[in-house]
Write a protein that binds this DNA or RNA. Structure first.
Lengths: 238, 238
DNA sequence: CGCCTGGTTGACCACTATCAAGGTTAGTGG
DNA sequence: CCACTAACCTTGATAGTGGTCAACCAGGCG
């Protein structure tokens, strides 16, 4: 909650980004690019748009998703501060990107990035590392979508939110969920109603406390972690 | 059943691989590495093993998968001739790899590959391209696992098999399925029985013909393609 | 020849989707 | 400042897709 000062609206400014240590995870301390600010629910780009920019989240949360003809939606990833997306080389984006909250993103021209990569082994390693992280988390998500029950999916999701390096409104015991229940459902391959029901179940079991719909407090982390891989932990009743 | 001649058992030979044009897709015409031959159902490595090699399939089909405590399995990918796996930089493999058929793989030491990558921009681009392909297909798979019905999943799978660049036993109208029904089920996030039932349905509709359990002939490609995104194409009855 | 693995089909049932209603919150305009 | 509206969230009732359990068949290998 300390990175949301000077909020111009939809402004674009060329800056050398000063990003926090958490970003060092990408190995790139400072990038140069155009930073733009957007209101919530703004579409940065849609599936099929020409993919000539790579994005880095500076503030807020972004949601990457794909659609099926009949309107079914699969959320591929929630991108938070420091996350990079649109990185894989491609002609056109293979997914759409919406802001969930007010958000700022830095855009880097793909060809500029390619030049930097060719010139600088450190940048190269950083990019590879970032792609690797993405692959790893996608593999975990394949397992979740293919083989976990609804209760395990929600528990896994919550647990990963608590695990995530602390950022705005996360003191390790409480997480801010910037997304709606429908967003969570579309991420987990279930419905909004099922998400609610499992959250209710976790609440009744005393595993979490739902301060308000977008703010959840962790009471029994170990139980949540177990529940992420074995729904029987939350055996019926209560 | 025609690819199982001259089976040396577990031989290893250093060779300059002569691989077919389909491999040019990786941009690397010839790699140098140790080629090893394995019988079907051989485990190349398991999740958690130190990841010091990158593999390239020279012959046969490999199956990459992860397990959940209670035995549930998610197949992440079927690797066929020319495919590369174990590429993302990691300390230990995050999945296991089994041969499905008799197979040969070329192993390259990770640090050797890293050296090549740093020295050669062409290799670099090829590797990045390969990772990109993997990301793209994983994103498609997330959509399948999260949002498609059983019928759509099987149709998608078959369609992708028919689309795949022709290789052993695929003349564009007939595909050889080296994997078992259980393997397919674990790839699609459903059960063996459901796979059988959908295949039966497709057969009764006249969309495919099942010459033998591992050999399927395509009769109506357009119908199969439509069914991959809209199960109602296969509306009940018959 | 008989076991064992893999495939197929059927009967039944459970998990989760769907449909529906009511509650809460935030944003908007009077 | 408050009424009104529209999202969003929550919970309940019902139904359907696909899982589970079980039986049987076929082929390969010891």
């Amino acid at each position: 909650m300390q990175e949301m000062r000077h909020l111009h609206h939809e402004t674009i400014e060329h800056t050398r980004a000063e990003i926090r240590p958490s970003t060092a995870r990408t190995g790139i301390e400072s990038w140069i690019g155009a930073v733009s600010n957007h209101a919530a629910k703004y579409t940065l780009f849609m599936e099929g748009d020409p993919a000539d920019h790579v994005y880095k989240v500076v503030r807020g949360t972004i949601c990457l998703y794909t659609l099926l003809a009949n309107g079914r939606r699969q959320v591929l990833r929630f991108c938070r501060v420091g996350d990079i997306f649109g990185l894989a080389p491609m002609e056109t984006y293979r997914y759409s990107a919406d802001t969930l909250t007010n958000a700022s993103v830095m855009r880097i021209r793909r060809n500029q990035l390619d030049t930097k990569m060719d010139a600088n082994p450190v940048v190269r390693a950083a990019i590879l590392g970032s792609i690797h992280d993405e692959l790893a988390s996608m593999q975990k998500h394949l397992l979740l979508l293919g083989r976990k029950t609804a209760a395990e999916r929600v528990a896994s999701f919550l647990f990963s939110m608590f695990e995530h390096p602390t950022y705005e409104g996360n003191d390790g015991q409480t997480v801010e969920l910037p997304m709606t229940r429908t967003d969570i459902a579309d991420y987990l391959g279930i419905t909004q109603e099922t998400v609610c029901r499992v959250l209710g179940q976790l609440k009744r079991k005393g595993v979490i406390r739902i301060t308000d719909p977008h703010r959840i407090e962790l009471l029994q982390g170990d139980v949540l972690e177990d529940a992420a891989e074995d729904e029987s932990i939350l055996a019926h009743a209560a």
